[in-house]
Protein backbone atom coordinates (compact mmCIF):
# COMPACT_ATOMS: atom_id res chain seq x y z
CA UNK A 1 0.00 0.00 0.00
CA UNK A 2 2.83 2.35 0.94
CA UNK A 3 4.31 2.08 -2.55
CA UNK A 4 1.07 2.69 -4.35
CA UNK A 5 0.43 5.73 -2.16
CA UNK A 6 3.96 6.98 -2.82
CA UNK A 7 3.52 6.50 -6.55
CA UNK A 8 0.22 8.30 -6.54
CA UNK A 9 1.61 11.18 -4.47
CA UNK A 10 4.62 11.50 -6.77
CA UNK A 11 2.19 11.82 -9.66
CA UNK A 12 0.38 14.58 -7.75
CA UNK A 13 3.69 16.22 -6.91
CA UNK A 14 4.53 16.43 -10.60
CA UNK A 15 1.33 18.40 -11.27
CA UNK A 16 1.96 20.59 -8.23
CA UNK A 17 5.48 21.24 -9.43
CA UNK A 18 4.30 22.09 -12.95
CA UNK A 19 1.78 24.60 -11.63
CA UNK A 20 4.44 26.08 -9.34
CA UNK A 21 7.13 26.36 -12.00
CA UNK A 22 5.02 27.76 -14.82
CA UNK A 23 3.27 30.21 -12.50
CA UNK A 24 6.66 31.59 -11.44
CA UNK A 25 7.88 31.66 -15.02
CA UNK A 26 4.97 33.87 -16.13
CA UNK A 27 4.19 35.77 -12.93
CA UNK A 28 7.71 37.10 -12.32
CA UNK A 29 8.09 39.05 -15.61
CA UNK A 30 4.39 39.97 -15.65
CA UNK A 31 4.75 41.27 -12.09
CA UNK A 32 7.66 43.46 -13.14
CA UNK A 33 5.65 44.86 -16.06
CA UNK A 34 2.71 45.56 -13.73
CA UNK A 35 5.13 47.22 -11.29
CA UNK A 36 6.26 49.61 -14.03
CA UNK A 37 2.61 50.14 -14.98
CA UNK A 38 1.77 51.10 -11.41
CA UNK A 39 4.61 53.64 -11.38
CA UNK A 40 4.12 55.21 -14.80
CA UNK A 41 3.40 58.93 -15.09
CA UNK A 42 0.71 58.06 -17.68
CA UNK A 43 -2.30 58.24 -15.40
CA UNK A 44 -4.88 56.10 -17.29
CA UNK A 45 -2.47 53.13 -17.36
CA UNK A 46 -1.54 53.62 -13.73
CA UNK A 47 -5.20 53.64 -12.69
CA UNK A 48 -5.93 50.57 -14.81
CA UNK A 49 -3.14 48.62 -13.11
CA UNK A 50 -4.24 49.81 -9.68
CA UNK A 51 -7.82 48.64 -10.32
CA UNK A 52 -6.57 45.27 -11.59
CA UNK A 53 -4.39 44.78 -8.52
CA UNK A 54 -7.29 45.78 -6.28
CA UNK A 55 -9.66 43.25 -7.89
CA UNK A 56 -7.15 40.40 -7.93
CA UNK A 57 -5.92 40.95 -4.40
CA UNK A 58 -9.43 41.68 -3.17
CA UNK A 59 -11.06 38.39 -4.25
CA UNK A 60 -10.21 34.79 -3.39
CA UNK A 61 -7.83 32.98 -5.69
CA UNK A 62 -10.21 30.01 -5.64
CA UNK A 63 -13.00 32.18 -7.03
CA UNK A 64 -10.68 33.50 -9.77
CA UNK A 65 -9.69 29.94 -10.66
CA UNK A 66 -13.34 28.83 -10.96
CA UNK A 67 -14.20 31.82 -13.15
CA UNK A 68 -11.21 31.33 -15.44
CA UNK A 69 -11.83 27.61 -15.81
CA UNK A 70 -15.62 27.58 -16.24
CA UNK A 71 -16.19 31.13 -17.51
CA UNK A 72 -15.14 30.71 -21.15
CA UNK A 73 -17.30 27.60 -21.57
CA UNK A 74 -20.35 29.33 -20.14
CA UNK A 75 -19.92 32.67 -21.93
CA UNK A 76 -18.50 31.58 -25.28
CA UNK A 77 -20.39 28.33 -25.49
CA UNK A 78 -17.26 26.25 -25.93
CA UNK A 79 -14.54 25.39 -23.46
CA UNK A 80 -11.19 26.90 -24.41
CA UNK A 81 -9.43 24.55 -21.96
CA UNK A 82 -9.31 21.02 -23.22
CA UNK A 83 -11.19 18.74 -20.84
CA UNK A 84 -8.16 16.66 -19.92
CA UNK A 85 -5.60 17.09 -17.16
CA UNK A 86 -3.39 19.35 -19.33
CA UNK A 87 -6.29 21.76 -19.86
CA UNK A 88 -6.94 21.95 -16.13
CA UNK A 89 -3.29 22.61 -15.39
CA UNK A 90 -3.15 25.32 -18.06
CA UNK A 91 -6.21 27.07 -16.64
CA UNK A 92 -4.68 26.87 -13.18
CA UNK A 93 -1.39 28.36 -14.38
CA UNK A 94 -3.25 31.22 -16.09
CA UNK A 95 -5.28 32.05 -12.98
CA UNK A 96 -2.27 31.70 -10.69
CA UNK A 97 0.01 33.77 -12.93
CA UNK A 98 -2.39 36.71 -12.99
CA UNK A 99 -2.96 36.46 -9.25
CA UNK A 100 0.67 36.15 -8.26
CA UNK A 101 1.84 38.80 -10.75
CA UNK A 102 -0.33 41.31 -8.87
CA UNK A 103 1.21 40.43 -5.52
CA UNK A 104 4.71 40.39 -7.05
CA UNK A 105 4.14 43.79 -8.68
CA UNK A 106 3.62 45.42 -5.29
CA UNK A 107 6.80 43.80 -3.94
CA UNK A 108 8.77 44.86 -7.03
CA UNK A 109 7.46 48.41 -6.77
CA UNK A 110 8.60 48.57 -3.16
CA UNK A 111 11.99 47.23 -4.21
CA UNK A 112 12.44 49.73 -7.03
CA UNK A 113 11.25 52.70 -4.98
CA UNK A 114 13.52 51.60 -2.16
CA UNK A 115 16.61 52.21 -4.28
CA UNK A 116 17.68 55.80 -3.48
CA UNK A 117 16.99 58.40 -6.20
CA UNK A 118 20.68 59.31 -6.03
CA UNK A 119 21.57 56.00 -7.68
CA UNK A 120 19.46 56.83 -10.74
CA UNK A 121 20.82 60.38 -10.82
CA UNK A 122 24.40 59.15 -10.63
CA UNK A 123 23.66 56.98 -13.67
CA UNK A 124 22.04 59.88 -15.50
CA UNK A 125 24.95 62.27 -15.03
CA UNK A 126 27.26 59.52 -16.29
CA UNK A 127 25.33 59.51 -19.56
CA UNK A 128 23.62 56.15 -19.10
CA UNK A 129 20.36 55.39 -20.88
CA UNK A 130 17.22 54.57 -18.91
CA UNK A 131 17.57 50.86 -19.62
CA UNK A 132 21.27 50.86 -18.72
CA UNK A 133 20.39 52.51 -15.42
CA UNK A 134 17.71 49.90 -14.73
CA UNK A 135 19.74 46.83 -15.68
CA UNK A 136 23.20 47.92 -14.53
CA UNK A 137 22.35 50.00 -11.45
CA UNK A 138 18.84 49.49 -10.07
CA UNK A 139 18.04 45.84 -10.81
CA UNK A 140 20.47 44.06 -8.53
CA UNK A 141 19.81 46.46 -5.66
CA UNK A 142 16.10 45.83 -6.16
CA UNK A 143 16.60 42.05 -6.23
CA UNK A 144 18.48 42.21 -2.94
CA UNK A 145 15.60 44.13 -1.38
CA UNK A 146 12.85 41.86 -2.67
CA UNK A 147 14.34 38.45 -1.86
CA UNK A 148 12.88 38.20 1.69
CA UNK A 149 9.30 39.24 0.79
CA UNK A 150 9.45 37.20 -2.44
CA UNK A 151 10.48 34.08 -0.55
CA UNK A 152 7.33 34.47 1.54
CA UNK A 153 5.11 34.73 -1.53
CA UNK A 154 6.80 31.88 -3.36
CA UNK A 155 6.45 29.57 -0.35
CA UNK A 156 2.78 30.50 -0.16
CA UNK A 157 2.50 29.61 -3.86
CA UNK A 158 3.69 26.06 -3.15
CA UNK A 159 0.74 25.52 -0.84
CA UNK A 160 -1.75 27.51 -2.93
CA UNK A 161 -1.31 24.99 -5.73
CA UNK A 162 -3.62 22.75 -3.67
CA UNK A 163 -6.48 25.06 -4.71
CA UNK A 164 -6.31 23.47 -8.18
CA UNK A 165 -8.25 20.56 -6.67
CA UNK A 166 -11.39 22.70 -7.01
CA UNK A 167 -11.29 22.24 -10.79
CA UNK A 168 -10.28 18.58 -10.36
CA UNK A 169 -6.61 18.99 -11.28
CA UNK A 170 -4.89 15.95 -9.81
CA UNK A 171 -2.29 17.72 -7.71
CA UNK A 172 -0.57 16.63 -4.49
CA UNK A 173 -3.34 17.36 -1.98
CA UNK A 174 -5.94 15.78 -4.26
CA UNK A 175 -3.76 12.68 -4.49
CA UNK A 176 -3.43 12.37 -0.71
CA UNK A 177 -7.09 13.10 -0.08
CA UNK A 178 -8.29 10.48 -2.57
CA UNK A 179 -6.98 7.68 -0.31
CA UNK A 180 -9.12 8.92 2.53
CA UNK A 181 -12.18 9.04 0.31
CA UNK A 182 -11.72 5.62 -1.27
CA UNK A 183 -9.93 3.61 1.43
CA UNK A 184 -10.62 5.58 4.59
CA UNK A 185 -6.88 6.03 5.14
CA UNK A 186 -5.68 9.13 6.98
CA UNK A 187 -1.94 8.50 7.09
CA UNK A 188 -1.50 9.46 3.40
CA UNK A 189 -2.64 12.95 4.42
CA UNK A 190 0.34 13.27 6.77
CA UNK A 191 2.56 11.70 4.16
CA UNK A 192 1.33 14.42 1.76
CA UNK A 193 2.32 17.02 4.33
CA UNK A 194 5.86 15.62 4.32
CA UNK A 195 6.06 16.21 0.55
CA UNK A 196 5.12 19.88 1.02
CA UNK A 197 7.58 20.24 3.89
CA UNK A 198 10.43 18.88 1.77
CA UNK A 199 9.46 21.10 -1.17
CA UNK A 200 9.40 24.22 1.03
CA UNK A 201 12.56 23.10 2.83
CA UNK A 202 14.50 22.99 -0.44
CA UNK A 203 13.15 26.41 -1.41
CA UNK A 204 14.16 27.84 1.99
CA UNK A 205 17.72 26.59 1.47
CA UNK A 206 17.71 28.11 -2.01
CA UNK A 207 16.56 31.50 -0.73
CA UNK A 208 19.15 31.45 2.05
CA UNK A 209 21.76 30.76 -0.59
CA UNK A 210 20.59 33.69 -2.75
CA UNK A 211 20.58 36.02 0.26
CA UNK A 212 24.12 34.98 1.11
CA UNK A 213 25.24 35.45 -2.49
CA UNK A 214 23.90 39.03 -2.42
CA UNK A 215 25.54 39.75 0.91
CA UNK A 216 28.70 41.14 -0.68
CA UNK A 217 27.24 44.63 -0.99
CA UNK A 218 25.06 46.84 1.12
Amino acid sequence: MFWSVTQSLLGGLLTTFQIFLFTLLFALPLGLILAFGSMTRFKPLRCLVQVLVWIIRGTPLMLQLIIIFYGPGLWLGHNIWSGNEAGRITATVVAFSINYACYFSVIFRGGIEGVPAGQREAGQVLGMTKSQIFFKVTLLQMVKRVVPPMSNEIITLVKDTSLARIIAAYELTFAGYSFMKSNGLTWPLFYTGVFYLLFVGILTLLFNHIERRLDYFR
Binding site: Q119, A122, G127, K136, F217
Partner: peptide, 27 residues
Protein backbone atom coordinates in the same frame (compact mmCIF):
# COMPACT_ATOMS: atom_id res chain seq x y z
CA UNK B 1 24.77 67.10 -23.40
CA UNK B 2 25.08 65.70 -19.90
CA UNK B 3 28.59 64.46 -20.69
CA UNK B 4 29.87 68.05 -20.82
CA UNK B 5 29.39 68.09 -17.07
CA UNK B 6 30.60 65.78 -14.34
CA UNK B 7 28.90 65.64 -10.97
CA UNK B 8 30.16 64.72 -7.52
CA UNK B 9 27.28 64.35 -5.07
CA UNK B 10 27.16 65.24 -1.42
CA UNK B 11 26.16 61.66 -0.56
CA UNK B 12 28.64 60.07 -3.01
CA UNK B 13 25.98 57.86 -4.69
CA UNK B 14 28.47 55.14 -5.52
CA UNK B 15 26.95 51.97 -6.94
CA UNK B 16 27.10 49.54 -3.96
CA UNK B 17 27.23 46.34 -6.03
CA UNK B 18 30.39 47.35 -7.90
CA UNK B 19 33.98 47.60 -6.69
CA UNK B 20 35.76 50.96 -6.62
CA UNK B 21 37.34 50.23 -10.00
CA UNK B 22 34.06 49.02 -11.54
CA UNK B 23 32.34 52.18 -10.31
CA UNK B 24 34.91 54.24 -12.19
CA UNK B 25 34.89 52.19 -15.42
CA UNK B 26 31.19 51.26 -15.72
CA UNK B 27 29.94 54.29 -17.64
Amino acid sequence: KRLHFGMVFQSFNLFPQYTALENVTLA
